[in-house]
Design a protein around this nucleic acid. Sequence first.
DNA 1: AATTCGGGGGC
DNA 2: GCCCCAGAATT
Length: 350
Amino acid sequence: MKLEEITEPLLSWYEENKRDLPWRRDPSPYHVWVSEIMLQQTRVEAVKGYYERFLSALPGIEDLAACPENKLLKLWEGLGYYNRVKNMQKAAKEIVLKYNKEIPADYEKILALPGIGSYTAGAVSSIAFGLKKPAVDGNVLRVISRITENGDDILKQSVKKRVEQELEAVMPEDRPGAFNQSLMELGATVCIPNGMAKCSDCPVSHLCKARANGTVLEYPKKASKKKRRIEEKTVLLIQNGQEYAICRRPDQGLLAGLYEFPNVEGWLTEEEVIRAVEEWKLIPLHIRTAGEAKHIFSHVEWHMKGYVVKVASTEEKEAGNLLFINKKESKGKYAIPSAFSAYRKYIEED
DNA sequence: AATTCGGGGGC
DNA sequence: GCCCCAGAATT
C-alpha cells in the first residue's frame, strides 16, 4: 500500500463530515494560532468557550501583546498548561516588533516562535497559509500507526519525526490544511483510542493494515507511564470579614504566577495551623475544618485538608505575601486554578 | 531521552 | 481507577 492512496478518500470524507468548529469559521492566521495553542493536549469541547471569550477580549495580536499578565491568566484560568499563554504573549510581542504585527507566512519563522513546536507550526502553516507542511499530533500518530500497522512507540520523538517526513512526501500541494485536518478529524471522531474505533465509518478502512488483520485494538503502541507522586497539603482559608487571603505562586514551576489560598506542606493539626497563621503576624480568632479535597495533575496528586481561620480585623490589604480579596475580585480579577475549586466556594458564597 | 508542565471526560 | 487529549520546553 502506498500511503498517498489515503489522500483522496480522506479529503472527500472530510468535506462531508467535518465538524462546525468556531476556529473554522474565520481561519485568519491569528485565529488559527490561538486555537492551536489552546488545543495542545486539550479536548475540542474544553476549548470552545475559552476560544470565543479569549478573542472577544483580545481580538488582535497587538491586544495580546499588550495584555497585563493577570488578565491573560484569568482568560486562561482552568484551561491548564499556563505556560502556553505566556509563551503566546512572548510570541505576540515578537511578531509586533519583528514581523510588523503579522504572523510570517514561513514555516521556519513560525516554528521559531515561543510555544510553537513542529505540530503547531505545521498546523498554522498549512491551515492559515496553505503551505505544504504536516501537522502530526496524537490523532495522526494513532491513525497512521493503525493504517500501517506500525508497532513503534508513538511517544518517541523519532517516530513523530518519521511520520512527519512520510506525510510531507505524500501531502497534496493544493489543500494541505484540509489534508492535515482530515487526519486529525478522523482520529478524533472515527479512529478513536481505547478500542472503540468505528471502522465501518472509516473512509480508508480498505487501506488499513490493522483493520485487515484485526489488530486495531493493539495500536498505537505506547510506553507505560510512571506513577504520580503524592503531596499532602494543608490549605488555609484565612478570613478577614468578607475577605479571604490569597497569594501568588512563584514564577517558575507548577501553576507559575497563578494565585492560590495559602497552604503548607503536610497535614497540620489545628494547633499547628494557629501557629502558622501567627507567623503571618495575624491574630487567629476562630478555626474550623473546611473538608478534604484531592486534585490530580499529570505527574502529581495533591491530597488536601482545609481549615477556615477567622482572624482579627486588620486594616492592611496585604500582610507579608498575603493579599486579602473579596468575592468579586476572586471571580473577576485573580486567576485561581482548578486545584482549589473545592475551597473557592468559601469566598464565593457568603 | 525523560521529565515537567492542567484539567476534564470517558469508560 | 486508568486513559488520553489538535504538545512544547526544559533537563
